[in-house]
């Protein structure tokens, strides 16, 4: 059933797949983000309580949801790497960590800029905010641990263990608004119920969610290609690739 996946354990095939997918991800990301953002900023109706400040939702919610999804994806890659001994999976793991950290940073930053006018404080030590901050530290921890090892296979295993242990934080973030009495509001769209948001406000939000997801995918495949080249720097196919890409200008 999973046999079609096996050729992609080979770095050369994984590299080619990333190269093929990259333009599609970029295309979806740019179109969805431009349309979603303009729609959300200028055409979506005002919130009856929060006025125009609610428009921060169009970047805050997608980045927050996807910061968690990216973490889960990273942990799955780490698990695959450890169980099936795929070095390519560890490369995928470390390719996702920086963009996940950026998403977490965006979620925290826009949350602060939204919290100031609505709650009167940039930051409160609330369950949702604190657990999201821990997510950022987990991402940074994975990156730091990976770069601390000279042997990248060892690095992948060590950082992979950290990524896997950190998964426990994801449900904590998601349910923090239910488990604890927090200042942060409850889920608007990510729940098993009808979204508690008007459709005119929801559509641009879903578009931006798609756009952010495609952006993360695009950056991930870019970084995975980089990681593959870095690890396979002496391989003939990489040398050939570099010669093709740089052409005559770096002929040695």
């Amino acid at each position: 059933m999973w046999k079609w996946l096996h050729p992609y354990a080979k770095t050369e095939n994984a590299y080619q797949l990333c190269k093929t997918l990259q333009p599609y991800f970029w295309g979806v990301a740019v179109v969805a983000l431009v349309v979603g953002t303009i729609w959300g900023l200028a055409f979506a109706p005002q919130d009856y309580q929060q006025g125009d400040s609610f428009r921060i939702i169009y970047i805050h919610v997608p980045s927050a949801i996807l910061s968690m999804s990216t973490y889960v994806a990273m942990a799955v890659a780490a698990l695959v790497g450890m169980v099936w001994q795929w070095r390519t999976a560890f490369m995928a793991m470390i390719a996702m960590a920086p963009i996940g950290a950026v998403m977490t940073f965006i979620a925290l930053f826009t949350g602060a800029a939204w919290g100031k006018p609505m709650w009167g404080a940039w930051w409160v030590w609330d369950a949702r905010l604190t657990s999201e901050l821990i997510l950022l530290f987990l991402y940074l921890g994975v990156i730091a641990l990976y770069s601390a090892f000279e042997d990248k296979q060892q690095a992948g295993k060590a950082a992979g263990v950290m990524a896997l242990v950190g998964v426990v934080n994801v449900p904590i973030i998601h349910y923090s608004v239910e488990w604890w009495n927090t200042l942060h509001q409850g889920a608007t769209i990510s729940k098993f119920d009808k979204p508690s948001i008007a459709p005119e406000m929801l559509w641009p939000l879903l578009l931006n969610l798609l756009g952010f997801a495609a952006f993360i995918a695009a950056v991930t495949v870019m970084r995975l290609r980089n990681e593959i080249v870095r690890r396979e720097i002496q391989r003939p196919w990489v040398v050939e690739l570099a010669q093709q890409e740089l052409g005559g200008r770096n002929a040695v």
Binding site: T37, L41, Q46, G51, D52, S53, R55, I56, I59, H60, S63, P98, I99, V102, F105, I106, F109, T110, A113, W114, K116, P117, F215, A218, V219, M222, R223, N226
Partner: peptide, 26 residues
């Protein structure tokens, strides 16, 4: 932005810069 210009544009601006930076860096 109905009086919320600072917060809205700060959020969108920082997000744009952060995304541009990671894409360009990669």
């Amino acid at each position: 932005m109905g009086g919320y210009a600072l917060y809205v544009w700060l959020s969108f601006g920082v997000t744009f810069i952060a995304m541009l930076a990671i894409a360009w860096g990669s």
